[in-house]
Design a protein around this nucleic acid. Structure first.
Length: 467
DNA sequence: ATGTAC
């Protein structure tokens, strides 16, 4: 018996060495070469039957591992063509976002999807993408800012009840912006989310608890904001009379805590799918029936609750400072995955920059620092998987905005609309966004508009170049 | 989006 006979069986290097050892033992036991080759074929055909023990056990283990790897590669193969998916506001969507959605719809775990009219390019799934998968959750299908969300508090005050200078002072005192920011220990608020047992159920969560506790109630950077403005309600709704109210609108996420959860599980998902095609690398998933998928699901939902807790504290501080109780509140997450019935099947519906819009569900779709936000009620459109856009969507990337836009034009835009801005970079200028009126106009079959919010006093993080 | 290290 020599290597050639084993190569002919189709064995690889490591398996050949193991087969040679086993074959030598069988020769010693007095078997002929043909008998041994026949035994080896039997091991190859069904390695699992030889795992328990005997001369072929090690070879069988190697062959079984190779088979498992081949199965995993095969399970990671993309479909040759994307499953079809509907698009809202196709004329508003750049080609790159379509290309990304096409790749997502070629994943073997994908079952349905939709693209919202604010869609633009992101990492993995495009922003404005909705993707339903079977027994799989994709960390980059949720996004880096897990649980990123909106909240509105309608206050029992007239819109003119707060002067710009007073509003500015309140925002400066009660909100915190910037990467890495936290409240001083003295000012730190508590929230029930910090008392959940969940934090103790994973090493990662235990590790991130202190960061989460120090950053709770803060707003972060990028497109996050807290603003006072005028809420206009043309018809009675939300338990309110029609009219105009002073209101607070916030956009915030899960801060450093969520970002680290996202980073950890994205890396884990990529390691689990080494055979995934390069264009789909950032769409690596975690099987929900395995430990890794369960762990992400638990951490993701905690980050979702934590993000909403941030809003709770922001709104509570401002309402308390004004000595009022909100008349009504609306909130929704727009970066998260949900278990949802799609047809007859329970699927994992990822919304990455998409507002849940099941029939009757309330949601908030902001425009920009100076454009109106919309308070909406979902229409439960099944083709959109019960979703709508999460905002206007970028028309210029951050760098393009910095290159193209001029401070003076942004200031004029703000002035025309009577908006006072604290912080805010040129990369967040209204001109960097699609026209929210058009984006809303493209999704009349997804949501009904019940009210609008016009920003008046806006706080954001200081951008690379201030406005 | 985060806040550190391609």
């Amino acid at each position: 018996m020599n290597g050639k006979h084993l190569v002919k069986l189709g064995l690889e290097k490591k398996a050949i060495a193991l087969a040679q050892t086993a074959a030598a033992a069988r020769e010693k036991a007095g078997l002929e070469r043909d008998e041994i080759l026949s035994e080896l074929r039997a091991v190859q055909a069904n390695p699992d039957a030889y795992l328990a023990g005997g001369v072929y056990a090690e070879l069988a283990a190697e062959l079984a591992a190779q088979q498992a790897k081949r199965d995993a590669q095969k399970g990671a193969e993309l479909r040759p063509a994307p499953l079809p998916y509907p698009v809202w506001g196709e004329d508003l969507i750049e080609a790159g976002a379509r290309t990304q959605m096409d790749v997502a719809m070629r994943l073997p775990v994908s079952r349905a999807g939709a693209l919202m009219p604010d869609a633009h390019v992101g990492y993995g799934l495009p922003i404005g993408g909705v993707l339903a998968t079977e027994n799989a959750v994709i960390p980059y299908g949720v996004g880096v800012d897990i649980g990123c969300s909106m909240m509105l508090s309608v206050l029992p005050l007239p819109p003119q009840g707060l002067h710009a200078e007073d509003g500015k002072a309140l925002l400066l005192k009660h909100t915190r912006f910037g990467a890495g920011v936290a409240f001083d220990k003295r000012e730190r608020a508590d929230h029930e989310v910090l008392h959940e047992d969940t934090w103790r159920e994973q090493a990662l969560l235990r590790h991130l608890y202190d960061k989460a506790a120090t950053q709770i109630g803060t707003s972060g950077s990028g497109n996050h904001f807290v603003e006072f403005g005028t809420f206009s309600l043309p018809q009675p709704d939300l338990g309110l009379e029609a009219g105009e109210y002073l209101a607070v609108l916030s956009h915030s996420g899960s801060r450093g805590f969520g970002a680290q959860v996202a980073g950890h599980f994205t890396a884990l998902a990529e390691r689990l799918h080494p055979g995934l095609a390069p264009e789909a690398k950032k769409l690596a998933w975690l099987p929900l029936d395995q430990e890794e998928g369960q762990a992400y699901w638990q951490a993701m939902n905690l980050a979702g609750r934590y993000a909403l807790a941030n809003h709770d504290l922001i709104h509570a501080r401002l309402a308390r400072a004004l000595n009022v109780q909100p008349l009504a509140q609306v909130r929704n997450s727009h970066n998260l995955a949900w278990k949802q019935m799609v047809g007859e099947q329970e699927l994992i519906v990822h919304r990455k920059g998409a507002t849940p819009a099941e029939a009757g569900q309330l949601g908030l779709i902001p425009g920009s620092m100076a454009d109106p936000g919309y308070v909406v009620r979902g229409r439960g459109n099944a083709q959109a998987l019960g979703s709508a856009s999460h905002g206007a969507g970028r028309v210029l990337g951050r760098k393009a905005a910095e290159r193209t836009l001029v401070k003076k034009d942004v200031q004029a835009y703000l002035h025309e609309r009577g908006v006072t801005l604290l912080g805010g970079g040129i990369d967040e200028a209204p001109q960097a966004y699609k026209r929210i009126e058009e984006v809303i106009g493209r999704q009349r079959d997804l949501v009904d508009v019940l009210g609008t919010f016009q920003p008046r006093i806006v706080r954001m993080d200081t951008g690379s170049e201030d406005v």
